[in-house]
């Protein structure tokens, strides 16, 4: 009896404690599952552009800088080079501009971070500081405790051996089928 009481208290408080991290991992997990269906970190904005280029190639960087930056007020020019396919590629802050050197027609691609999701994905991938690996291990251990303790909290007709076991088995069937037959 005493054990069940403590289990309930610990389950409740540990559960509160991991609300934030669970939400972060669940939301970013969905985004990362679909990272090849959509860009999970960035909005990719593609825009057709046309500029007046001086005769070339070769082009002078000092000439290209104001031309590229004139496309949009927010553009910060970095550098350019001629690609092996004969296009002029200009690197800009968070993007690039690719132009036909003869016509000045081309495409600009700008990446904009998905607010909050970008940071959550970085935590999920441990692309942040390495210490996060150990912190997330600790959170995972707490989540495991919350899950296991939850199994034993209730007794009676809604307890583990009456109702609970069927839901547990139901939740295990799908991953087990995939592990055995679809790998």
């Amino acid at each position: 009896m005493q054990l069940r009481k403590w289990l309930r208290i610990l389950h409740r408080d540990a559960g509160y404690f991991i609300v934030g991290v669970t939400v972060i991992y669940a939301v970013s997990g969905i985004f990362l599952n679909h990272k090849y269906d959509l860009n999970s970190d960035f909005h990719v904005i593609t825009q057709q552009v046309q500029v007046d280029l001086p005769p070339g190639p070769p082009f002078q960087e000092k000439d290209l800088k104001p031309i590229i930056e004139s496309i949009d007020d927010n553009i910060l020019y970095k550098r350019s080079f001629m690609t092996s396919q004969g296009y002029l590629k200009a690197f800009i802050h968070n993007g690039e501009v690719v132009l036909d050197p003869e016509t000045g027609i081309g495409e600009m691609q700008i990446l904009r971070k998905r607010a909050v999701v970008f940071e959550m994905n970085n935590l999920h991938r441990i692309s942040t500081h390495k210490s996060w690996k150990w912190i997330s291990d600790a959170f995972a251990a707490v989540l495991l405790f919350v899950t296991i303790s939850g199994i034993f909290i209730l007794k009676g007709k809604n307890g583990l051996m009456k109702r609970g076991i069927w839901f547990i088995l139901g939740g295990l069937i799908v991953p087990i089928v995939y592990m055995i037959f679809l790998m």
């Binding site: 990362l32 990272k35 090849y36 860009n39 999970s40 970190d41 960035f42 990719v44 080079f81 001629m82 690609t83 092996s84 590629k89 990446l111 994905n121 991938r125 692309s127």
Partner: peptide, 16 residues
């Protein structure tokens, strides 16, 4: 790489 930045490409004097 736009899918998480797990890799990048460095070029020399040209992209060849």
């Amino acid at each position: 790489c736009q899918h998480g930045g797990q890799r990048c490409f460095l070029i020399g004097a040209s992209d060849e």
